[in-house]
Structure formats: structure tokens, C-alpha cells
């Protein structure tokens, strides 16, 4: 059984039909990279997976549990699905350390000193232990994004979603974030990564999915998609960005 199973997922914003029947499975430990033109529904798909958007139709099954079930405790489910955003979204009134301890204490009810130990462990993991007492505005974009990754990881999720996490960064700061993500992939984390970083997709991705206009057009290994795409639209998209 797949860790994550998405069955005929639709999302409409009023009349706008953004996701038009997405089917995909993600295995435990797999790194799935999603590429596609702007407006194709990549962010909407990720946001549906942790229910920041309410799916209009379809099922999302995490480890055998249908998380679109209205009776489910969505706050419990969200702890199992980490998400990192393009705009970092660190809590601006809290230090790097507090950004990580707050959800541990509030959501998981972990005592303060234990939460701090966990937070430091994950800050170390992203190479920012020495920035624990810095506020977000005292950190570079790349550092903020690494804290955001550490914050999501500290909740001990089963799947991590990344939505163009390097797009808002200055070019020289992209690598430090990608390096953290590569290490995470090597450690066996299940990841769904929306990105324009084709080098990353090639190197780390087990599978690449090309989305266009609310549908999955084509999927395969990075090798298949990048060197031998089957669909004209995939070819056109790749020729534009590569």
C-alpha cells in the first residue's frame, strides 16, 4: 500500500476548475518532483494534500486513512504532513528557536525544555544552531527557509511538501536550501517537491510529474521526462525552462 494515495482529486474556486481529476500515489521514502507552468495547479494540489484548501471532490488517503473525511480531526492529520512555503512564513514575533518550540508545545504539549532540545537538534540538522536566538528579520532568506524546514521537520511528519521553496531566494542562497533537502531525501524522508530546479529534480527525484492545466500530463523517472518526454506539451515546457 502506498503511503499517500490521491484518487480523482478535483478543486474548484467558484467556476474556476483548477484541479481536474488528479490521480497519484507516493510510496514511503519516495521523492516526487512536480513541475509545470504557472497556474497549472501545483500549489493547489499541495495545499489540498494538507487541507489548507478543501478539495471539491475525490479522496486523499494517508497510510490507509481518508483525510478528506469531514469527520476526521484535521489538526491531527496536519501534524503528519509537513509543508514548506515559498514565502517561508516564519512567525515574525518569535526567534528561530521559538518558531520551532511553539508548535511542539502548543500542538504536541511537549514541556519547554524538552521542546528546546528537539528544536536545537533540528536547527543543527539545517546548520543553524548558532542562530537559535535570532528573529526572522535578522536572518537571510536562505536561513529563514532552513528554519522553516526545521520547524516542519520537528513535528516528525511522515510526508514533507515543498512548494517552490527556493523561488523567493537570491540565487546565491538557493544551494544551501537545496542541500538541506537533498540530505533529507538521503535520510529517507517521503517528499513531494514542486520546483523549477531541474538539477535538483534530476539528482534527487525518484519520479517527476508534469502538470498542466489541472491535470497530470506525464510522469516517469527524471531520465524519461528530461531526455525523452512523450508529450508535446512536456517537451515545450522543458524547452522553455532548460
Amino acid at each position: 500500500m502506498s503511503l499517500l494515495e490521491i484518487i480523482d482529486l478535483h478543486k474548484k474556486f467558484g467556476k474556476l476548475h483548477v484541479l481536474k481529476g488528479i490521480n497519484m500515489n507516493v510510496e514511503k521514502g519516495e521523492v516526487v518532483v512536480i513541475i509545470g507552468p504557472s497556474g497549472s495547479g501545483k500549489s493547489t494540489l499541495l495545499r489540498c494534500i494538507n487541507r489548507l484548501e478543501e478539495p471539491t471532490q475525490g479522496k486523499i488517503i494517508l497510510d490507509g486513512i481518508d483525510i478528506t473525511d469531514p469527520k476526521i480531526n484535521i489538526n491531527k492529520i496536519r501534524q503528519r504532513i509537513g509543508i514548506v512555503f515559498q514565502q517561508f512564513n516564519l512567525f515574525s514575533h518569535l526567534t528561530a528557536l521559538e518558531n520551532i518550540t511553539l508548535p511542539l508545545r502548543v500542538v504536541k504539549k511537549i514541556p519547554k525544555d524538552e521542546a528546546e532540545k528537539i528544536a536545537l537538534k533540528f536547527l543543527r540538522k539545517v546548520g543553524l544552531e548558532d542562530k537559535a536566538d535570532h528573529y526572522p528579520h535578522q536572518l537571510s532568506g536562505g536561513q529563514q527557509q532552513r528554519v522553516a524546514i526545521a520547524r516542519a521537520l520537528a513535528m516528525n511528519p511522515e510526508v514533507m511538501l515543498f512548494d517552490e521553496v527556493t523561488s523567493a531566494l537570491d540565487p546565491e542562497l538557493v544551494k544551501e536550501v537545496l542541500d538541506v533537502m537533498k540530505q533529507l531525501a538521503r535520510d529517507g524522508m517521503t517528499m513531494i517537491v514542486v520546483t523549477h530546479e531541474m538539477g535538483f529534480a534530476r539528482e534527487v527525484g525518484d519520479r517527476v510529474i508534469f502538470m498542466d492545466n489541472g491535470k497530470i500530463v506525464e510522469e516517469g523517472t527524471p531520465e524519461e521526462i528530461f531526455t525523452n518526454p512523450k508529450h508535446e506539451r512536456t517537451r515545450k515546457f522543458l524547452s522553455m525552462i532548460l
Binding site: 489548507l52 489538526n75 496536519r78 512567525f91 511553539l102 502548543v106 522553516a148
Partner: peptide
Amino acid sequence: KGQMEAARSLGMTYVQAMRYVVLPQ
């Protein structure tokens, strides 16, 4: 808006997100 979303995405309830993230700011 991203502050509320980030808080909710970490498993906080609406009330927790308001109390610990949005209102202090």
C-alpha cells in the same frame, strides 16, 4: 495570511493560531 496558514499547517487549531501567532503580531 501566511502566518495563519503556517500555524494551521503545523496542526494548530484556529483558536491556537489566533492566540499564539496572529494576535501577538
